[in-house]
């Protein structure tokens, strides 16, 4: 279970606080849209949930573990094993193949290579980009890149997927494909949190957390 209690964050000590005193429990197996205007801290909240940032105040609890109490190593391991990230710009390594990009989180979690490759190919097939497995990011479209990013986020079967404006640069068709896959993951028990201001995404989310 993912929850935040009395959560606040400011980039400077004593500076303006984002989402001051936020308390929320993200429903297990649901897609939660974190909505709000630009600058309200949607992406920042995602980074805090992903244990990349420490909150100024309050706690992030993942299955009862307080993220702030964990060492950097423990947080890295938690990310590697249980958290998947989808970045706004896909963030694929331009020098590596699509298949390499997808299995990257498995390298950090120490997963079995052959099983991971098989799983990556299945995910690519589910998202209709299996024919691009040996291509490089520069050889595929933005929509395909974002679908690949979703595959990468799901490669370790994470308990939590954090997606930062995953449809921000996509047309409706690609956006639907990406959202469908995230919804499918939620249906399989993954907690999906999407930072977005896209009404299309908000309409299709199970829950909405407004900032």
């Amino acid at each position: 279970m993912l929850e935040v209690r009395d959560l606040s964050f400011s980039y400077r000590r004593g500076g303006e606080e984002l989402f001051g005193g936020l308390t929320h429990t993200f429903t297990h197996g649901a897609v939660t849209a974190v909505a709000g205007a630009s600058g309200r801290g949607k992406s920042t909240l995602l980074y805090i949930l992903g244990l990349l940032l420490r909150p100024s105040r309050g706690v992030v609890a993942i299955d009862g573990l307080c993220g702030s109490d964990l060492t950097d190593l423990a947080r890295s391991n938690l990310r590697a094993l249980h958290i998947g990230f989808v970045f706004q710009d896909a963030a694929l390594d331009p020098s590596r193949t699509i298949l390499d990009a997808i299995i990257e989180p498995a390298l950090y979690s120490g997963s079995n290579c052959s099983k991971t490759t098989s799983r990556a190919l299945d995910l690519l097939a589910q998202l209709g980009v299996q024919h691009r497995a040996s291509h490089r990011p520069g050889q595929i479209s933005g929509g395909q890149a974002q679908r690949v990013a979703v595959c990468r986020a799901l490669i370790n079967d994470p308990a939590i997927v954090l997606a930062d404006e995953p449809t921000g640069n996509l047309d409706r068709e690609n956006a639907e494909t990406v959202l469908d896959e995230l919804r499918r993951a939620a249906g399989a028990g993954t907690t999906v949190v999407i930072a977005t201001h896209d009404p299309f995404v908000i309409d299709r989310a199970d829950e909405v957390l407004a900032l």
């Binding site: 993942i62 950090y108 290579c113």
Partner: peptide
Amino acid sequence: MKSEPAPGMRPTTLLREALVSAVARP
């Protein structure tokens, strides 16, 4: 979900990743 350390990068994986990464940026 546990906070125990994950297996982390295996030495062979780390070596291969370093090699591939080195070749990728000639």
